[in-house]
């Protein structure tokens, strides 16, 4: 019995020490991690979509409650007007969810651009949806309110060759976003205005 108690005590103490140490490290690094996440996961896509804006959209951000979930919006200021927001949506690829950043001109509801943030697609094929500028360029100027589809599905987007599924997933992500975009538009307009310079 004595050795069992010793076992339990040693294990518990050790686990507790570990827990404490980790909690300490976590609290020390938390703020930094959050910014890093923003910068490296979503940042590149946002900045690319909002190329030429005069503000730092990573700083100029706001959140809107959409039922249960909270959605983040990044504001781009062009010509002094905060007329563009970027937000994230998700589509299904075959490697899991594909994170899609959608930039919309809130005045015209036109797509300003699209960027892929996170994905688990096959390198070299599906991942080209993220890297291939010509694929992304097709989205520019489309209307957010219209469904976006790849050509085999009767849409207007040329799929990345060999990665139809991924392309389809991206389009679906964009299309899905129009739903909550429309739903939240009033709040967005309101919040975005605050960033105008």
């Amino acid at each position: 019995m004595r050795d069992i108690i010793r076992m339990i005590v040693v294990l518990a103490v050790m686990a507790a020490c570990g827990g404490a140490l980790l909690a300490g490290v976590k609290s020390g690094t938390a703020a930094k991690i959050e910014y890093q996440q923003l910068k490296f996961v979503k940042g590149p896509a946002i900045i690319e979509i909002l190329e030429g804006c005069s503000n730092d959209p990573l700083v100029d951000r706001f959140k809107v409650k959409d039922g249960e979930v909270e959605r983040g919006f990044y504001v781009g200021v062009f010509d002094g007007k905060a007329n563009t927001v970027v937000f994230e949506s998700f589509g299904k690829g075959f490697g899991g969810d594909i994170g899609v950043m959608v930039g919309v001109n809130i005045e015209t509801d036109e797509l300003l651009g699209m960027g892929v943030t996170t994905h688990a697609e096959t390198p070299g094929l599906g991942s080209r949806a993220k890297d291939d500028p010509s694929f992304r360029a097709q989205f520019k100027g489309l209307s957010i309110t219209e469904p976006v589809k790849v050509k085999p599905d009767g849409g207007q987007i040329d799929a990345v060759s060999g990665a139809t599924i991924t392309s389809r997933g991206v389009c679906q992500g964009v299309t899905d976003s129009s739903a909550f975009y429309s739903r939240l538009k009033p709040q967005i307009l309101e919040q975005a205005r605050a960033f105008a310079k």
């Binding site: 050790m14 490290v25 930094k32």
Partner: peptide, 19 residues
Amino acid sequence: IIIATFVVVVELVMQAVAY
């Protein structure tokens, strides 16, 4: 437990430094 603790430390530090 010991190893896992350090792994999590690495995980956290890496997130903060080399995301």
